[in-house]
């Protein structure tokens, strides 16, 4: 698969640490919701650095969006989140990945579970679902540290309008909004039982987020009776354990 030149055509701040970049790529044929793309940066002396980013936009020709959360001390994400500006050049290769993908043709219930910036590929699925007029009933359980850390909050509210067939539930791990019915805390079996499709509805399940979050959420889903083969996961970052 070849590298293709891409132009940053727009940037949009999502939260204090996350930003969406629109990349224009000539001949880009679109992607499957959930896929990612390799992004390569080249310095003036020829040094290159490459990272993979999930595509957050709905499939479109000639264009894609990535939503990047800054990793402190990182090499590529600080540049994409702070420095890259419209008109700047990067290279992309993709779309990549044939497992963590959802088809808008699926009529099974859709269960999405996101931790932090793990919302990005799941947002592509929800945008594709809306664009395709899919009637697959969908639920999103979205874990964030505090209200201001939720990426795409306003758009998710619009997507989950009455009649949309989408329900969005937030889990706040550090600080909750005023009047929130639950104390701050991690996703647990009780919240999952309240907010997620039960196993007997046989949903397509996609879980994306930091490693520890995905480990916990996937274990809870299996314990709640979901078949391990129906639970597709994408993890990022360190294990959070030793080393």
């Amino acid at each position: 698969m070849r590298w293709q030149p891409a132009e940053v055509s727009a940037v949009h701040a999502e939260t204090q640490s996350a930003r969406t970049l629109t990349l224009r790529v000539e001949g880009w044929a679109g992607h499957l919701p959930g896929q990612h793309v390799d992004v390569r940066l080249t310095a003036a002396d020829g040094y290159t650095a490459t990272r993979s980013y999930s595509i957050s936009s709905a499939p479109a020709e000639g264009e894609l969006e990535i939503t990047v959360d800054e990793v402190r001390g990182g090499e590529v994400s600080p540049y994409l989140v702070r420095d890259a500006a419209p008109g700047d050049a990067v290279e992309v290769r993709g779309p990549l990945g044939g497992w963590f993908v959802w088809s808008p043709d699926s009529i099974r219930p859709l269960q999405l579970v996101a931790g932090g910036s793990g919302i990005a590929p799941l947002m592509s699925m929800l945008r594709a679902r809306a664009a395709a007029g899919s009637t697959a009933p969908a639920r999103l359980l979205y874990s964030v540290r505090r209200p201001g850390a939720a990426i795409f909050a306003a758009e998710l509210e619009r997507l989950a309008a009455p009649g949309s067939g989408l329900e969005v539930t937030y889990a706040y791990t550090r600080a909750v909004p005023p009047g929130w019915p639950r104390p701050a805390g991690r996703v647990d079996a009780r919240l999952l039982a309240e907010a997620a499709w039960p196993a007997d509805r046989s949903p397509d399940v996609y879980v994306c987020g930091p490693t520890g979050f995905v480990e916990t959420a996937a274990d809870l889903l299996v314990a709640a009776g979901h078949s391990a083969t129906d639970v597709r996961t994408e993890r990022f970052g360190p294990t959070g354990s030793t080393s």
């Binding site: 590298w3 030149p5 390569r40 940066l41 080249t42 310095a43 003036a44 002396d45 020829g46 040094y47 290159t48 650095a49 090499e75 540049y79 420095d83 890259a84 700047d88 050049a89 990067v90 290279e91």
Partner: peptide
Amino acid sequence: ALISRGFSGRPR
């Protein structure tokens, strides 16, 4: 390859 303006990367 084309150059990404302002990208320097890690110390070589």
